[in-house]
């Protein structure tokens, strides 16, 4: 009986440690992902993850504090957007007017491909038409052809 209880306790301890390690790993992954989403306010083109500027460090600390207090990713993003505006996000949210920023490049690529397709189709049609056009033989060419054909008949 004592042996069973001991085994059960060890099993539970292992499971708890495993769960704790998993939670910590999950928090680390979320932290890195969030750090990467925010722009360093004092640098050019760097995320707070890649910057050691004072503001970046403070933003990272604030994100970690909020996350460990149970805030969702959306709540953390909203906290900073409320104070800095959407500028603080490295990728604009996919909603409202910002949708244009996500859709326009795709539309541009498709429009470009469509234009290329139309131009190439026109080129092919033009070349085929030129190939189909019958150019009459010059009098000299007609004479040579007639002479050649006569040789066949006389053979």
């Amino acid at each position: 009986m004592t042996r069973t209880v001991t085994l059960l306790a060890v099993f539970l301890l292992c499971m708890t440690s495993f769960g704790w390690a998993n939670t910590n790993e999950e928090i680390e992954t979320r932290l890195i992902d969030l750090f990467n989403q925010f722009r360093c306010p004092t640098c050019q083109g760097l995320s707070v993850k890649d910057s050691e500027a004072g503001f970046s460090v403070q933003i990272r600390n604030k994100i970690e504090e909020m996350l460990r207090a149970g805030a969702s990713d959306d709540e953390i993003r909203a906290y900073f957007v409320e104070r800095y505006g959407e500028w603080i996000l490295r990728s604009p949210p996919k909603e409202g007017f910002n949708l244009l920023l996500w859709i326009l490049p795709g539309i541009g690529i498709f429009a470009g491909l469509f234009v290329l397709l139309r131009i190439s189709q026109k080129w092919v049609q033009k070349q085929r038409a030129e190939a189909r056009e019958e150019t009459p033989l010059s009098p000299e060419e007609a004479k040579i052809l007639e002479a050649d054909l006569t040789r066949f008949q006389n053979h």
Binding site: F55, Q58, R83
Partner: peptide, 13 residues
């Protein structure tokens, strides 16, 4: 040290 007021006011510099 956490820059609580600065972050709350969305400071850049």
């Amino acid at each position: 040290d956490e820059g609580s007021i600065a972050l709350n006011y969305g400071l850049y510099g």
